[in-house]
């Protein structure tokens, strides 16, 4: 329903929205700008930065010094791997909780969420020691597994919410139509939940991509993802803003591009799913 909003109010709201949006985006923009300057220019007064020479120097240096592709590939394996495995575990769990709730379902859900309230550093030592004893330090297997465990509550919660939106009668109809549980999930539940699953997948890939505590703690060289790549350009001595900015832009670019493309996918998926 349309609400009466004066043009003046609309204009003010629009301007405010743009300002807030710009303020939130500004740090990333500034990183982008710094990455195209020399170290010397990058620490100048902001106005001087804008007017000083633009250059790809920092990117060249970063490219030369680090094996970007290896870090990138580690990030891909870890984020996609942990999310996909997480989804494989989460779909049946969320199905059970959404469609066959028991007396303790709500408690289980809350308990799962509560694991997110524990600061990760609280379990650092046990997890570190477990990884060490299993010989999993600095391996992608360990990170895939740990990030999967970390994000599992979120994946299950998201799927649970999406599944609950799906009318139970449709699944019952499938059962009446002779579908086994497996077919019910594959032919009816999953296609209807595609937008939800897609956004769960995306969000968790992004979360895993940006995870910087475990990825820094449990990797050294072989399994180090892009977070470690960024971290290696921070320094207490000497100038590093430009190189750090260039490294950051290189690290977030893939996920930004993916987000931008899948945004269209997502919107299409959502309108498609709006049929009820």
């Amino acid at each position: 329903m349309a609400r009466a909003v004066t043009t003046q109010r609309k204009t003010i709201n629009t301007v405010i929205a743009w300002i807030v949006g710009f303020l939130i985006f500004f740090p990333i923009l500034w990183i982008f700008i710094l990455s195209f300057h020399t170290e010397g220019d990058a620490i100048k007064h902001p106005f001087e930065v804008l007017t000083s020479r633009w250059t790809f120097e920092s990117y060249a240096t970063v490219q030369e010094r680090s094996n970007y592709f290896r870090h990138f590939w580690n990030s891909v394996v870890i984020s996609v791997g942990s999310t996909v495995i997480g989804l494989i575990i989460a779909v049946p769990s969320a199905w059970a909780m959404a469609f066959v709730p028991g007396r303790r379902t709500k408690d289980v859900l809350m308990w799962m969420l509560s694991t997110k309230m524990l600061p990760p550093v609280g379990v650092l030592l046990p997890i570190y020691l477990i990884c060490q004893n299993l010989g999993l330090l600095d391996t992608r297997v360990a990170l895939v597994f740990i990030l999967m465990m970390i994000n599992l509550p979120i994946i299950i919660w998201m799927l649970y919410t999406y599944f609950r939106e799906i009318p139970g009668e449709i699944l019952e109809a499938a059962r009446m139509d002779g579908a086994s549980l497996r077919n019910e999930v594959i032919y009816v539940l999953l296609p209807m939940a595609v937008p939800g699953i897609a956004s769960t997948l995306l969000l968790n890939i992004i979360l895993a991509w940006n995870e910087a505590f475990w990825t820094l703690t449990l990797t050294a060289a072989k399994a180090a993802p892009l977070t470690a790549f960024i971290a290696s350009y921070s320094s207490p001595e000497g100038l590093f803003y430009a190189k750090l900015s260039a490294a950051s832009i290189m690290a977030i670019a893939p996920i930004l591009i993916m987000g931008w493309f899948s945004q269209k996918q997502l919107v299409r998926g959502l309108t498609f799913g709006a049929v009820k």
């Binding site: 009318p167 019952e172 109809a173 499938a174 296609p191 799913g273 049929v275 009820k276």
Partner: peptide, 13 residues
């Protein structure tokens, strides 16, 4: 048995 539901329960996709 076959069943027809109040909400029709058609598969929207």
């Amino acid at each position: 048995l076959a069943m027809v539901f109040q909400s029709y329960a058609l598969y929207p996709h």
